[in-house]
Computed example of a mutant assay.
Amino acid sequence: MVRANRSRGRAARAREGHPELDVERLTTGWRRTEVRGGREWNVQPVSEAQAVKAYLCPGCGLEVAPGIAHLVAWRGDGVLGDAADLAARRHWHIHCWRIESP
């Protein structure tokens, strides 16, 4: 008797298709909240593929070049509201964010 190397489960899953992707969950799934200096910050990583523009890192003052993974951080507890906090977000080198206290 010939033995199949593939599990039968994989073929059954392929016939069922893939579930719909929830883009909102994917884009916000990595966002986290950190407390630094008594303030709450929203921190969201940006992958190399997502980094398409150049930004100035507030930690070191150098450019965060396109294609470099980095973090975007904004206040989570600002008094002017969520829209103002989001508009004031900054792009940080990962290392700078770890060693700096904004």
Rank of each mutant, 00 (worst) to 15 (best):
V2K: 03
V2R: 14
N5H: 13
N5V: 12
N5S: 11
S7K: 05
G9I: 09
R10M: 07
R10P: 07
A11D: 13
A12V: 12
R13V: 02
R13Y: 15
A14C: 13
E16M: 04
E16D: 13
H18K: 02
P19R: 08
P19Y: 03
P19T: 02
E20K: 15
L21H: 12
D22S: 09
V23E: 06
E24W: 12
E24T: 11
T27I: 05
T27H: 13
T27C: 14
T27W: 10
T27N: 15
T28K: 14
W30C: 10
W30I: 06
R31I: 05
R31Y: 05
V35C: 13
G37E: 01
R39S: 07
R39F: 00
E40M: 09
E40P: 07
E40R: 15
W41Q: 02
W41Y: 14
V43A: 01
P45C: 00
S47A: 12
E48T: 06
A49P: 04
Q50K: 06
V52Q: 06
V52I: 14
K53W: 13
A54G: 04
Y55V: 00
Y55Q: 03
Y55N: 01
C57E: 12
P58W: 07
G59M: 05
V64I: 05
A65G: 04
P66F: 08
G67R: 03
G67C: 02
I68C: 03
L71Q: 09
L71W: 00
V72N: 09
A73M: 08
A73G: 07
W74E: 00
R75A: 03
D77P: 04
D77C: 01
G78L: 14
G78C: 14
L80N: 15
L80M: 14
A83H: 05
A84D: 10
L86G: 03
L86F: 12
L86E: 08
A87D: 05
R89I: 09
R90K: 07
I94Q: 09
H95K: 15
H95Y: 09
H95M: 10
C96E: 07
C96H: 14
W97E: 01
R98L: 08
R98P: 07
I99S: 04
I99Y: 01
I99W: 06
I99L: 10
I99C: 02
E100C: 12
E100P: 00
S101V: 03
S101I: 10
P102N: 04
